[in-house]
C-alpha cells in the first residue's frame, strides 16, 4: 500500500477507537446524571437517611465521604510526599530501590476488597479502632499511597535537572535544594495529583464496607469537640460514605424509594468527583500562573 493510504487507514482506525472510548464514557456519564439529577434537591442533600420509609436524604453520607477524604489526605500526603522525595532525589539506582518501586507497583494493583479485609483484620480488630472513620482513612491511605507517591514523584522529576545543579552551584545543601527549589517548582503537579487522588478515593466503597462500616449513627453538627462520641468530627465513630450507601441501598435497602435514592446519590458522587477534577485543573493552572507572573 502507498504511504498516504496507510496513513489514512491508521487515522480512521485510531479515531474510531478513540470515538468508541469517548462514547462509552460520555453515555455512562450522561445516563447517570440524567437518572440522578431529577432526584437531587435541597431536602435530599440536607436530610438524614431513612431506614424504612421513603424521602430519606444523604446529608451524613455526603459529609462522611468528604470528611474521610480529608482524613485520608492528612495521613497519606505527608507519607507519599516523603516517599516521592526519597525516590526522586535520594534513592540510588540499586536493587533496594528497584524492590521498593516494585512493591509500590504491586500495592497500586491491589484489589480494594483485599485492602478492605486487611483493614478489617488489622485496624478494626487488631488495633481495636472498631468500624470507624480512622480505620477507613487508614485503609484508603493504603489504596491511595502508591498512586499519590507516583504522581508526586513524577511532579518532582519534571523539575529540570539544571535547577538542582544551579542550587548546588550556589552552595546550597541537597536538602535545601529539595525543599526550596524542587518542591516549590513541583507544587502545581503535587496539588493536582493530590486532588485527583482525592476524587478517586471519594468514590471508593469496597475498602470501606469492612473498615468505616455501613452504619450512620446520629451525629450532631453543632458539637465541635472531636472527642465527643456524637460529634461530627469524631474520627472514631462508624461512618457510612456515599459510595457505600449506594451499594447498601441497592443490595439490602428496605426503603421503598431505594432506586431514587441510589440514582440521586450516584449523581451527587459523580458531580463531586467532577468538581474535584475541575478544581485540580484550575488550582494547578493558577499556581503555575502565579509562579511565572
Amino acid at each position: 500500500m502507498r504511504p498516504e493510504r496507510v496513513d489514512r487507514l491508521a487515522t480512521v482506525i485510531v479515531l474510531s477507537l478513540a470515538g468508541i472510548v469517548g462514547m462509552v464514557v460520555f453515555s455512562l456519564l450522561i445516563y447517570i446524571l440524567a437518572m440522578g439529577i431529577p432526584h437531587i434537591n435541597w431536602h435530599f442533600l440536607t436530610a438524614e437517611a431513612e431506614s424504612f420509609s421513603a424521602g430519606g436524604g444523604i446529608r451524613d453520607q455526603l459529609f462522611n465521604s468528604l470528611y474521610l477524604v480529608v482524613l485520608t489526605l492528612i495521613v497519606s500526603v505527608p507519607l507519599a510526599l516523603c516517599a516521592a522525595i526519597y525516590l526522586s532525589e535520594y534513592a540510588p539506582a540499586n536493587r533496594w530501590t528497584q524492590g521498593l518501586r516494585l512493591a509500590i507497583e504491586v500495592l497500586s494493583s491491589l484489589p480494594s476488597v483485599v485492602v478492605g479485609l486487611f483493614g478489617y483484620l488489622v485496624f478494626v480488630l487488631q488495633f481495636g479502632f472498631d468500624f470507624s472513620l480512622l480505620a477507613g482513612a487508614l485503609a484508603l491511605t493504603i489504596l491511595n499511597l502508591p498512586i499519590l507517591t507516583r504522581s508526586c514523584e513524577d511532579a518532582l522529576r519534571q523539575v529540570p535537572y539544571l535547577q538542582r545543579q544551579a542550587g548546588l552551584g550556589l552552595g546550597m545543601s541537597k536538602w535545601r535544594v529539595t525543599t526550596k527549589i524542587v518542591l516549590p517548582a513541583a507544587l502545581p503537579g503535587i496539588i493536582t495529583g493530590t486532588i485527583l487522588s482525592a476524587g478517586r478515593i471519594f468514590g471508593e466503597a469496597a475498602a470501606l464496607i469492612y473498615t468505616a462500616g455501613q452504619s450512620s449513627p446520629a451525629i450532631n453538627y453543632a458539637d465541635w469537640n472531636p472527642f465527643s462520641p456524637t460529634s461530627f468530627l469524631n474520627p472514631l465513630r462508624p461512618a457510612e460514605t456515599l459510595a457505600v450507601h449506594i451499594w447498601k441501598v441497592n443490595s439490602e435497602g428496605l426503603v421503598p424509594d431505594a432506586r431514587a435514592v441510589s440514582n440521586g446519590s450516584a449523581a451527587v458522587l459523580i458531580i463531586t468527583i467532577l468538581l474535584f477534577n475541575l478544581i485540580a485543573r484550575y488550582a494547578g493552572h493558577r499556581i503555575k500562573q502565579h509562579l511565572t507572573k
Binding site: Q163, Q165, A166, M172, A185, T292
Partner: peptide
C-alpha cells in the same frame, strides 16, 4: 558549600528559580 560560594557556576541553559 563554602567552596561553591567562592567558586560559583553558570550553566549551559539559564536556570532562574521560579
Amino acid at each position: 558549600y563554602r567552596v561553591r560560594q567562592q567558586i560559583g557556576m553558570v550553566f549551559q541553559q539559564p536556570t532562574p528559580f521560579p
